[in-house]
Design a binder for these strands. Structure first.
Length: 454
DNA sequence: ATTAGGG
DNA sequence: CCCTAAT
């Protein structure tokens, strides 16, 4: 059987995007493609990246190279070496057309904006859940340094770097079309390597990668597996996410030690220094705070573009992230303002329905595990805003002047209804009755609320 | 570490 | 969203 994969070279100027975000996007794409009839595999619409590959960004020259039927996936390390030789990049994909129906150009579109870049080398996050999740190398800038660091810290032995390849030129990712073959694959690979089926110009240029090629690498469980397997992991990964989310991370790590008036930027720098001491090439960044934002924005746009063609029949067009507003010139101060999509709101509502108001952390874990942004605090804030919106809606109803000067217009009534129902059910903790939101819940028709709440 | 609340 | 106080 033909075993191919595609190895994408990525320019060093780019970096990874958050794993979860990517997964989410891929998932969305997958769904959209399924809905559009472009793919049949409905079975696994819940898994973003298992059987296909996704690249962060396509390199200019992607050369396909068939390694023959008996070849397995290339060993990551091997790949890295291969990739070092310009123009020689790996494989084609046997997997049902990587990404299920996504054409290369689509992939390209998707990913092009996906990674504008980023900073902060978090080398202890060099994990690549089996099915390729680039985001784990959050914010890699100096790839070489990154890789070297990872290698020297023995992480590789741990197989944390699975299907990823970091080259001096960038990062490459590869599909895992034959994950099931587990170790055998690796062996094949090594065999291949030893027989020097390919001469490897190991230009370990920028990096001093000294990795025992004969070492066995274990496969890392899929992201989904990890998620399902335990809450512990979830917790840990969440922590990691937060760390890599830059801005919020710095806050967490340096709780209240800092001087009161530090600007966020200074902050981040402070935060990063420690790492710099141990990691050779860290680039930090003034831009760090914005990049992720831009990042997301572009991605959203890209996704939207991709969805565009099927949008005609789309179930709920509003589910698409509304294009965020222009970036604040003020510069990188705040997290980018990501507008809440209706689906997100629904998820939040579901969460509240299930856990009740106040269990933001739980809700986040269960319903927003795939969206790295949206911290529990965000959820809380959003809920508060929903209640407010609810209240305002009622007000506007009363005035009945048809004034749609409301900024929250896009919220469907059904959503607001559910909010009010829930608000009624789970009165906001503490001062439940004194604030402005109470009126909303109390005066709204709440007859059928039982149905929504289990 | 999480939450509630104020800004 | 951010920040902080209070758990």
């Amino acid at each position: 059987m033909e075993r191919k994969g595609v190895l994408y070279n990525i320019d060093s100027s780019i970096a990874a995007k958050r794993e979860d975000e990517i997964n989410q996007e891929v998932l969305d794409l997958k769904r959209s493609h399924f809905e559009a009839g472009k793919i049949q595999a409905q079975d696994d619409l819940s898994t973003p990246c298992d059987d296909y590959l996704l690249d962060i960004e396509f390199a200019e020259s992607i050369t396909d190279l068939d390694y023959g039927s008996s070849r397995g996936l290339l060993d990551p390390i091997l790949e890295s070496q291969i990739s070092l030789s310009p123009g020689l990049v790996v494989q084609e994909s046997q997997s049902q057309n990587a990404m299920f129906g996504l054409t290369n150009s689509e992939l390209h579109d998707l990913s092009r904006d996906k990674c504008e870049s980023q900073i902060l080398v978090e080398y202890n996050a060099v994990k690549f859940p089996t099915a390729f999740t680039p985001g784990d190398i959050s914010n890699v800038d100096d790839v070489a340094g990154f890789f070297a660091e990872a290698a020297s810290s023995e992480k590789i032995n741990d197989s944390v770097i699975d299907h990823s390849v970091l080259t001096s030129k960038g990062i490459s990712f590869m599909s895992n079309a034959m994950r099931n073959e587990g170790q055998d694959v690796n062996r094949e690979i090594f065999d291949m390597h030893e027989s020097s089926a390919i001469s490897l110009p190991v230009t370990s240029q920028a990096m001093n990668i000294d990795i025992p090629l004969t070492q066995k690498r274990l496969r890392k469980p899929t992201r989904r597996y990890i998620d399902e397997s335990s809450d512990l992991n979830a917790k840990r990964s969440r922590k990691r996410e937060e760390v890599s989310t830059c801005a919020s991370a710095s806050k967490d790590k340096l709780p209240r030690v800092r001087c009161q008036k530090k600007s966020r930027a200074e902050f981040t720098e402070m935060e990063l220094f420690p790492e710099e001491s141990s990691c050779k090439a860290i680039q930090v960044p003034f831009a760090s705070l914005v990049n992720e934002e831009c990042d997301k924005r572009h991605t959203s746009n890209a996704i939207q573009v991709m969805k565009a063609h099927k949008e005609v029949t789309v179930v709920n067009p509003k589910d698409d992230p509304i294009a965020p507003k222009k970036l604040d010139q003020d510069g990188a101060r705040r997290k980018h303002h990501r507008l809440w999509t209706v689906s997100e709101v629904r998820k939040l509502i579901d969460g509240v329905a299930q856990y009740g108001v106040g269990r933001w952390s739980h809700i986040k874990k269960l319903y927003f595990s795939s969206s790295a942004h949206r911290t529990p605090v965000d959820l809380k804030d959003k809920w508060r805003n929903l209640l407010k919106a609810c209240y305002l809606q009622k007000q506007s109803k009363i005035t009945e002047k048809g004034k749609h000067n409301l900024s929250w217009r896009p919220l469907p009534k059904s959503v607001l209804h559910r909010v009010s129902e829930l608000a009624n059910m789970h009165p906001y903790p503490r001062n439940g009755r004194c604030k402005s939101r109470s009126p909303c819940s109390s005066s709204f028709p709440v007859h059928t609320n039982r149905s929504n709440i289990q």
